[in-house]
Nucleic acid binder design. Structure first.
Lengths: 194, 194
DNA sequence: GTCTATACGGCGATAGAC
DNA sequence: GTCTATCGCCGTATAGAC
């Protein structure tokens, strides 16, 4: 397999593993197994585990920003208006289908104390905020609202508030209220069989 | 020192360390050093690192719930009304002064995939939600709103979006909008010197 | 381009003295 | 009640073959 393609598959696997177990909890071996290669090969290709995580973070951010820009480009007349906020929110929720993407971002956000990952995470968070303010035309209050519900979504997914817990009436109510479009997301929220 | 008091100081130290580094990233040795005891003593007293974290999680939740109940008890006439939501929100923000408390909670929320911590975290999150709904009289939408901004606050603190980053205009704007009462919180948000 | 073998360090946990 | 010493595992990273 060509290196470029192998690289992609490892990054994809790493995104899932980092999202599930966190930066520290994830092992290069787990990433390797998920990608179907040997552990030393993962390290060889990315230098260090830290470097691999930074790549995952960078790509997740690029994907997120590109998705938002796509929505804005499709509805340039709505910049600064309410409907656009709803569209971008829906786009965000759709990204949950990519198991690991938003979770990896969230894991990075929790690493603010890390001397290397911390600055990258802060810069990434700011990039999103700037896009909302400067490209989507959100007011500061709209951006706060949007990001807050994004963090809530991330947290609900990370904590695994679905699956069996949906049997609890309050848990069901909580998930129902917090999730915009329920149907596709229940799938994303439920733990994968593996 | 009596065992009970020693226990308290270790739990307090552990709350800070777990909040800063996460469950996996924190070491029993770092907790021991922060508490001024030897590493084996920490393990001896709590059995395992996992057990220690569960204790930290439990105590943080108790503290959070007790704080909310205190506010409700002081204003029983406001149950189900808007002003109470503001009071509870302010109480939540005040808890940030206790460095580590809300961060440890957030770290636990990110461990949904863990077979032991995961269920405890979900149950804790639900306890908070039930309190808001059943004791504070929040509507589901109010609870969503409250929890969302709580998760946002946690995230901003965890990512360390303060200190030097306050020089960035957008970062300052973001923090200013998301934080209810700014003055006391800037202290909590800024990284401690150690 | 990918693997096997392995060195090396760190961390949780145990043993046992005082 | 608290420590020192230490074991053993696991995970990152390196060396080197194919």
């Amino acid at each position: 397999m060509p290196a470029e393609q192998r690289r992609e598959s490892i990054l994809s696997a790493a995104t899932e593993v980092f999202g599930e177990r966190g930066y520290v909890g994830a092992t290069t071996d787990a990433v390797a197994k998920a990608a179907g290669v040997s552990q030393p090969y993962v390290v060889r290709m990315f230098g260090t585990k830290e470097n691999l995580f930074l790549e995952v973070l960078h790509r997740a951010l690029e994907r997120l920003l590109a998705t938002f820009r796509g929505v804005i480009a499709e509805h340039p007349d709505e910049v600064g208006c309410e409907p656009l906020a709803g569209r971008i929110g829906a786009a965000y929720a759709d990204l949950l289908a990519d198991r690991g993407l938003l979770l990896s971002l969230m894991q990075a956000f929790m690493l603010g104390a890390d001397p290397v990952v911390g600055p990258a995470a802060r810069e990434g968070f700011l990039q999103v905020y700037r896009l909302l303010r400067e490209e989507a035309g959100f007011t500061p209050e709209q951006a706060d609202q949007f990001l807050s519900h994004g963090m809530m979504l991330n947290t609900l997914v990370a904590i695994g508030m679905a699956g069996d817990y949906a049997s609890d009436p309050r848990a069901r109510e909580l998930v129902d209220v917090c999730l915009p479009s329920k149907a596709p997301l229940v799938v994303a929220l439920a733990k994968k069989p593996a």
